[in-house]
Design a protein around this nucleic acid. Sequence first.
DNA 1: GCCAACGTTGGC
DNA 2: GCCAACGTTGGC
Length: 154
Amino acid sequence: MQYWLMKSEADVYSIEQLQADRRTMWDGVRNYQARNNMQAMKKGDLVLYYHSRQDPSAVVGLARVVNEAYPDPTQFDRDHKYFDEKASVESPRWYLVDIEFVRQFQHPVSLHDIKADAALSEMVLVNNSRLSVQPVRESEFMHVLRLAGEPALK
DNA sequence: GCCAACGTTGGC
DNA sequence: GCCAACGTTGGC
């Protein structure tokens, strides 16, 4: 089992929307490092769901990987904003995973709280703030759950 | 809404 | 292969 953090702007695709949809294709990632991280994901991996560009930016809940990486269909669609003319069905550039809603936190863990916590000082979120799909250590994942006041997962 | 930090592109 | 120019992200 590996752990991850995925970011979304709350007004673009919020955790409330994920809950309503139950699951979603994580399309539109056009950054190689983030893509590589998605390609490393395994079914059942757990994801910290983070809202960026809101006040305050925070980890707001959990999601789970339900389908491992496959080509992002939006890269082939000429009419889509995520179209990539350098990609082809024979040699795709961009991959995505499907994730499902697990739970929303009663008490989100803000970026401020994460930065203030010595146990989380090596989180990618703190040191490479622009990466939208990033690995999280098990100890960091559990620590964030504790800060949220959430019960541990079975 | 501003702008620093970062990633990508393309001219040379 | 360097690096300036450009576009994007995301904290503030």
